[in-house]
Design a protein around this nucleic acid. Structure first.
Length: 422
RNA sequence: GUGGCCGUAGCUCAAUUGGUUAGAGCACCAGGUUGUGGUCCUGGGGGUUGGGGGUUCGAGUCCCCUCGGUCACCCCA
């Protein structure tokens, strides 16, 4: 059979697997340091969770969902995004009034579409969400977390696009004004936009086509039409970012693809990736999401970050991606006696907290040293008949061939310290 | 989902206007070296040229279909 992974999916074999795992580790550590708690939600949900929240005209709902019927004829959908499921789980547990909750997740998302580099049918996301906090401080924190994550990996060639898309008070009036404007300029728009002026006028603004851009540039801007509270909130977000020296570019044409977003919208855009995959992550505020699910009003803000894309950006910026550490030592056992003792030596090293690999088979010393070399372990620990008889081991540093024969407990100390004898 | 480009060994690539047994480097395995790896030398395994069909005396090369990748678009992560 065809052994390649299904279209739009990826295998993460070494060393790629180590890199993805390292990304998970870094993300989890950073999120924890900000007080976010890890959550997991099901890989699939009731289809209506997404159709109710994302919006009937969204790309996700209209053409990207992996929807299927199970044997009980329930309509289920592979999770295309992380926010709605986490909110669902939060609301499900909620009793009494909404309380503040900070969550992060590291998991896979599924969207049907034509794949290319950096866009897949199955991809992994690092996401964080702050529920129950309406203030701009929360918006700023999510941006700061994302920014710090990318910087800590060594990325620098990206910028932040920021906008406010208002709320249920100011957006309807703006929307009507925008529709009027777009209708007036109808003839100059691309065909595909003409039909959607009424249904999703905001999205026409984000078109990359030059003619459309010219029209978008002249269009009324939502940031000029914000109601008092939205204006205040947006100002506070911008001030908060300045306080932390995070530069964000006001981008009036930035909108969100999903219906539940309100107020703050932002995207971190790579300057080295091609445009089709340049968005490293996108986020924003979604104060109406809980209500769309039939819950109370629960303000929220967060982002979702595509990790395959982060890896791509690292590659294109020429930055070495983080990886999992190689073993500390590779234990080499020679002959029957040496082999048995090697097993015990490996166990002792592991119990001392070291990462240790060894050969499953009794192979010649040279072959096992070659294995040790390939494992990238810093030390080979050789146990042959001579060592077995003397109750010692030979520690060999693979980088330069320095080696010494000494008792096991001293060897463990040396390896743990990573140095030569004192 | 729409349009363009590309598919030769695990990887990077070669193969005269269509011509005989599809090659090389790297990687991998073995030996030189039965207690010393990473260097070197020698040898070896590995391909239905993505798959199927067609044209032709003859197809890696030309045509069609299909699968996959990739680029642009839609949109995002």
């Amino acid at each position: 059979m065809d052994l390649s992974p299904p279209r739009g999916t990826l295998d993460f074999l070494p060393p790629d697997g180590d890199r993805m795992l390292a990304l998970y580790d870094r993300a989890a550590g950073l999120a924890r340091s900000y007080g976010y708690r890890y959550v997991e939600t099901p890989g699939f949900e009731r289809t209506e969770l997404f159709s109710l929240t994302s919006g009937q005209t969204s790309d996700i709902v209209t053409k990207e969902m992996y929807t299927f019927k199970d044997r009980g004829r329930r309509s289920l959908t592979l999770r295309p995004e992380g926010t709605a499921p986490v909110m669902r789980a939060y609301l499900n547990r909620l009793s009494g009034g909404p309380s503040a909750f900070k969550a992060y997740y590291l998991t896979r998302m599924y969207r049907y579409g034509r794949p290319q580099a950096g866009r897949y049918r199955e991809h992994r996301q690092f996401g964080i969400e702050v529920f129950g906090v309406a203030g701009a401080t929360a918006d700023v924190e999510t941006i700061a977390v994302g920014d710090r994550f990318l910087r800590s990996l060594g990325l620098s060639r990206y910028h932040i696009e920021l906008n406010s898309i208002g709320d249920e008070v100011c957006r309807p009036a703006y929307r009507a004004e925008l529709i009027d404007y777009l209708q007036a300029n109808r003839e100059r728009l691309r065909d595909e936009h003409r039909d959607r002026i009424e249904e999703n006028p905001l999205r026409v603004l984000y078109c990359k086509d030059e003619a459309c851009r010219a029209i978008a540039a002249e269009a009324p801007k939502i940031v000029d039409r914000l109601c008092g509270p939205c204006r205040e909130h947006f100002d506070a977000v911008q001030e908060g970012l300045e306080d932390q020296d995070i530069k964000a570019t006001l981008t009036p044409t930035l909108v969100r693809g999903l219906d539940y977003y309100t107020r703050t919208a932002y995207e971190f855009v790579s300057e080295v990736l091609s445009q089709a995959q340049a968005t490293l992550f996108g986020g924003g505020r979604y104060d109406r999401l809980a209500e769309a699910l039939g819950g109370p009003r629960v303000p929220g803000v967060g982002f979702g970050m595509g990790l395959e894309r982060v890896l791509l950006a690292l590659k294109d910026e020429g930055v070495e991606p983080p990886s999992e550490p190689a073993p500390d030592a590779f234990v080499v056992g020679i002959g029957e006696v040496g082999g048995k003792r090697a097993r015990d030596v490996a166990r002792a090293l592991r119990e001392a907290g070291l990462a240790v690999d060894r050969s499953f088979e009794d192979r010649p010393l040279g072959a096992q040293l070659r294995m040790a070399d390939r494992s990238e372990a810093r030390y080979a620990v050789i146990v042959g008949e001579r060592e077995a008889a003397a109750g010692t081991v030979t520690v060999r540093r693979l980088a330069d061939g320095w080696q010494e024969t000494l008792p096991l407990d001293l060897a463990i100390e040396r390896i743990a310290r990573g140095g030569e004898p004192g």
